[in-house]
Design a binder for these strands. Sequence first.
DNA 1: TTTTTGGTTCGGGTTATTCGGAACTAAATA
DNA 2: TATTTAGTTCCGAATAACCCGAACCAAAAA
Lengths: 162, 162
Amino acid sequence: MNKTDLQAQKTRLIEKLGVQFEKEHQLAPVAARIFATLIVTGKKGITFEQLVKDLNAGKSTVSTHLEHLQTTNRIEYYTKSGDRKRYFIVKPDLMENHIDEVTAKWEAQKCIHKEVLEYKLKSNELNKENPPFDMEFQKSLLDFLDEATAALNKLKKNINNH
Amino acid sequence: MNKTDLQAQKTRLIEKLGVQFEKEHQLAPVAARIFATLIVTGKKGITFEQLVKDLNAGKSTVSTHLEHLQTTNRIEYYTKSGDRKRYFIVKPDLMENHIDEVTAKWEAQKCIHKEVLEYKLKSNELNKENPPFDMEFQKSLLDFLDEATAALNKLKKNINNH
DNA sequence: TTTTTGGTTCGGGTTATTCGGAACTAAATA
DNA sequence: TATTTAGTTCCGAATAACCCGAACCAAAAA
């Protein structure tokens, strides 16, 4: 295993992560590759021009996506004194943010499905002649979301105590 | 609260669920509305033509999306003897399928991030002069995925014992 | 046999996404 | 002051996603 191999593996990993991020975070292809690059590159960061070169993308494309990734709280940058370039990195609290986002999403889902449950209950009352609604799905889903949320809260505490 | 109100609430719920499903399951707008309708409608199911009417959509659109929702294992249909119509319902094992899918997705994520971890380790060995890579993010993420997976497995057992 | 019912398939129009080139800018450098 | 650096902004082109109408089809009904 030499440095060329390592470089090849890096490229491969970025591509693999990129594909995943496209779906997971609903990112455009280049945006996903940028984010993946930052993940693999780590704390030392990577510059705008290096991203343009590495990803064979237009400056405008990279600029736009970097902007978007910053406003969505996924990345940030630091500078070195005497060096005008920006070094982009994933936000140090990305994991916590991610957990918060997922939790919020699940909470919203719980709300909706509780409403569905209410709707079905009311409907059963109002139309006693009709066969009643089944509610197992909603109940399972609510259980699912509760369990999952609990797991996340536990984990979040672990991370904070680190 | 009368039947008109209830109908209005149903429509509202379908729309709300629809928006969510578009992102969550990466469905086209009409596909998401169809799926939402089936969720709210429950076990009694709903026919093709009723969907076309309720959603103000083209027959071809509904047909295509119903096909897609079936091949992706989310819905199915039953028939009543002496009635040619198909009654579409969400798959009874949707929740289990969903859990399996999420678990598989998380497993895949774990694999990739383990590879990233390997890459960083190898890189550290090979370039001892460079500052070493940080790996907290990968480790946190792997913890996250382990916790979450454990929660799901627990839940899945609960559902099966039901 | 003809018509109706309950759909499916195909082709095209519309809209939205994604990307990049060219022109621009603000700060640093020469 | 002129030039380079490190980007940003503003289009337009290419592509993809989404939906629909029209034509089609197979099974049942008339």
